[in-house]
Design a protein around this nucleic acid. Structure first.
Lengths: 123, 123
DNA sequence: TTGTATGCAAAGCGTTTGCAGTGAT
DNA sequence: ATCACTGCAAACGCTTTGCATACAA
């Protein structure tokens, strides 16, 4: 139930090559260089399968569609550039936030997104 | 260019009555009690207009569609219950995170979401 | 040979928009 | 009497799915 196809290889390669989480369309563009006939439906199907196998992990940003990066990263956060909309990993975490929740609430996890300008887009 | 309609009043009322950010469909349900013929399109149109007038503010959570709460709240964050999916305001902020970004990046803002169990859904 | 994976196109789902009619001013 | 607002339904953008074919095993 696990077949190695050139399509899946191209998708994996595209994501591995990138230093930032990619959108499905960006993945399609990149992977098409290796497999020109690649279809968007196949990209979505493989992303879903690879996420289930934990080969990839989805990156959900507020108000934005999901991006994908390689799996196996430990807990980290993301930065989105307001100029180019690209997303970058932040390999740091300010810690727990359990004390912020109201009485009777239990905090299990958290998600932090920073917004601003990336180095390419300057000030 | 600003008319007071019973539809808009019902939408505003529904959101004001709730102690938590609501989804468009939840707003429709609530507001229909006052205006049974209310349509979802009208809800969306009014939400958009009221956000532009800053009467409302949208709440974007990672991987979820937008919710709406009253505008004018100062900077705060949100908690989403993993059992009931409802979202609650957190009237606290752990502070700036400028130091987390890579060299050359400028942090202008941030978004923090806590996940866990609300008091209704227990441990 | 077998059956999963693919390409294509149609279907879903939440949101937006066009249009003719309604109603606040 | 105007013209913004509404209800309805069609259109949209992103994602999923059905189906016949292609190809890894």
């Amino acid at each position: 139930m696990e077949r190695m196809t050139k399509q899946r290889a191209a998708i994996r390669e595209a994501i591995a090559r990138s230093r930032r989480p990619l959108l499905p369309l960006e993945i399609l563009d990149q992977a098409k260089e290796a497999v020109p006939a690649l279809s968007l439906g196949t990209v979505y199907r493989n992303l879903k399968a690879m996420v289930e196998e934990k080969e990839l992990q989805p990156v959900f940003l507020p108000g934005d569609s999901p991006r994908y990066e390689l799996g196996g990263h430990r807990h980290h956060h993301h930065f989105q550039c307001r100029a180019c909309n690209r997303v970058f990993d932040i390999h740091a975490c300010p810690g727990e936030f359990s004390e912020l929740a109201p009485q009777g609430f239990t905090v299990e996890d958290h998600e932090l997104t920073l917004y601003g300008r990336c180095s390419d887009c300057g000030t």
